[in-house]
Design a protein around this nucleic acid. Structure first.
Lengths: 125, 125
DNA sequence: GATAGTATACTACAACTGTAATCGATTACT
DNA sequence: AGTAATCGATTACAGTTGTAGTATACTATC
């Protein structure tokens, strides 16, 4: 399998934009989107895009005068990779203790709990 | 509440040793322990310890000629902090999607599933 | 007391990150 | 044609991290 590059916190925000929009987007579209959720300067965002290209997390095509960018890695792949690294670091790779920890979280609603339970039900053969 | 310092991957390994041993331990004890699980040079480990002291994740007392180190933050606190940052970055802070993601993991045994289900049961009022 | 062994402290250095400013090329407007 | 606006490329710069080497101070030994 393809190996997923490390994506930093700030870079992750850029990727999220690109994943959200199904179509490839220009640097400016990314900048616009991020100016709503962050207070990063356009140059900062350009830098992040550049780094993601270098890491091969984003690809681009020249379209006339501008570049249009598109993800080279899927959100699922990245989530899996990040999750694994988190799990390894914090829980020594042990899935269950991690889940136990989170299932205790206050913020789960009764509905959430129901849904999660159903999910577990389905896993039983 | 006290604010938890950022602890890097490598530093986390050092903290795990300190949390494991309930008693405060010397640099050498930490080095010994880590030489079994990693191939870091003693100096590397000393550096990590030093950084953790500077971040106030570890404290120390001089005990004759050597220092003995002890955690200033609990494992629980750090796990919570890391978990939160992971959740925010990767899942935009949404707990349920994260759990859904992990509950689908292949590596859960039937027993695990049972236990997790019981945990959820207990949460229902 | 000179020397060899330790312990901690200081220094090193490149890669990655967050955060941007500036440069150079091109285009659009006047 | 000259000038301003725009886009991507290059450069900047400090803080963190991984990974250690070197220096310094103290102690134990010969």
């Amino acid at each position: 399998m393809k190996n997923i590059p490390n994506i930093s916190d700030a870079e992750w925000e850029v990727m999220k934009i690109c994943w959200l929009k199904s179509a490839p987007c220009t640097a400016n579209e990314i900048v616009k989107a991020l100016e709503e959720s962050t207070d990063w300067k356009p140059n900062t965002i350009k830098t992040l895009i550049g780094r993601l290209v270098k890491k091969e997390a984003l690809g681009f095509k020249e379209e006339g005068r501008v570049y249009i960018y598109y993800p080279l890695v899927t959100e699922q792949e990245c989530i899996q990779a990040e999750s694994k690294s988190f799990l390894t670091r914090v829980f020594g790779g042990a899935l269950k203790p991690m889940l136990v920890n989170f299932l205790k979280d206050e913020k789960l609603s009764q509905d959430d709990i129901e849904e999660l339970k159903r999910l577990l039900e389905d896993r039983k053969e």
